[in-house]
């Protein structure tokens, strides 16, 4: 209980600090929301008028506290660019991004565990070298580049999906999922490679432990030892690692969404930054921060359940 309270306190402090950093960043970078909105034909009077309307004429500290007061009530203000509430912009986009992240995560689990076991069982030197080479290469390729390759292969050559023709999950849930499988591959592939490498190392380390020898002595088969004893124990560190992977999936989706024209939170963030649409940026960044902190918290909890020795 004390732990939970401590975590929640950390969460609040982290979110506060992040919101301040974003606020400061926007007052430092060149580009002004009012000028951006009014464009080249704006007169100084109109710019002043709009600045006043948006509250940009107030001192930065006052602006921050006004924003904070609303944010604690989950009101993130109005988008400068679109004149609609930030919450309404986020609504469907959060759903799209969530589906994308979940599919990516499922791919990581489904592919990395069997491949990891398979790779750990390979003892021949050429086999190991081949596996390591493949994982190293896959790990090294950035998601957005994979994204471009995937769009080219699956959309242009194989015509398996039409780039940019995303169906809203509200219209067709499976249609949306079908489209999102392709960006998910771009996000998941490097993560699968990382998890495979991690799992392989973990299993191999476990295989050298004393209890494995005992298990063999008791007459278990090779597979019996691997699946019955070793796998359980080698998955424990992988769970922590999964926390990192999920956080990376969330962060990685920002740029991949853009490549695949998925109307998600990531594309919204990029557009908002270019338009100096400050309320949107602040809300999205906080959302990401919140997610990552909560994921870490969940990982800690799971860790505690699977390994009772861990006291937190």
């Amino acid at each position: 209980m004390k732990y939970v309270l401590k975590k929640i306190l950390t969460l609040i402090i982290a979110l506060l600090l992040i919101s301040i950093v974003v606020f400061l960043a926007f007052s430092v970078i060149p580009g002004d929301a009012a000028i951006s909105k009014l464009g080249t034909e704006a007169t100084p009077e109109r710019i002043a008028e709009l600045r006043e309307m948006l509250g940009l004429d107030k001192p930065i500290l006052e602006r921050y506290f006004i924003w904070l007061g609303n944010a604690v009530q989950l009101d993130f203000g109005t988008s400068y660019q679109y004149n609609v509430s930030v919450n309404s912009l986020l609504g469907t986009r959060i759903i799209n991004s969530s589906i994308l992240s979940i599919i990516s995560f499922i791919m990581v689990i489904v592919f990395s565990i069997p491949i990891g076991i398979f790779s750990a069982k390979r003892r021949s030197v050429p086999g190991r070298t081949a596996m390591t080479t493949i994982t190293q290469i896959t790990m090294g390729v950035p998601s957005f580049f994979l994204g471009v390759l995937i769009t080219y292969l699956f959309s242009i050559i194989l015509k398996m999906f039409r780039l940019g023709d995303f169906v809203s999950p509200a219209d067709s849930f499976w249609g949306a999922c079908a489209y999102l499988v392709f960006p998910a591959i771009a996000i998941a592939l490097p993560k699968i490679a990382m998890t495979v490498k991690f799992l392989t190392t973990s299993i191999r380390a476990e295989l050298h432990k004393d209890y494995v020898r005992t298990a063999y002595a008791k007459g278990h088969t090779k597979n019996g030892v691997l699946y019955g004893h070793v796998l359980k124990n080698s998955l424990v560190p992988v769970i922590t690692f999964m926390g990192v992977i999920v956080a990376e999936i969330v962060a990685g989706s920002i740029i991949v969404e853009k490549v695949f024209s998925v109307p998600g939170v990531g594309t919204l963030l990029i557009t908002a930054i270019t338009n100096r649409d400050y309320p949107v940026v602040e809300a999205v960044v906080l959302l990401f921060a919140f997610l990552i902190i909560v994921i870490n918290f969940i990982v800690d909890m799971i860790y505690k359940i699977v390994d009772p020795r861990v006291k937190i």
């Binding site: 398996m160 023709d165 249609g175 999922c177």
Partner: peptide, 17 residues
């Protein structure tokens, strides 16, 4: 998901366009 992905046919799942 994989099934629906594999059977994904743009003729049937195409969006507004």
């Amino acid at each position: 998901c994989a099934c629906s992905g594999g059977g994904n046919n743009p003729e049937t799942t195409g969006g507004e366009g």
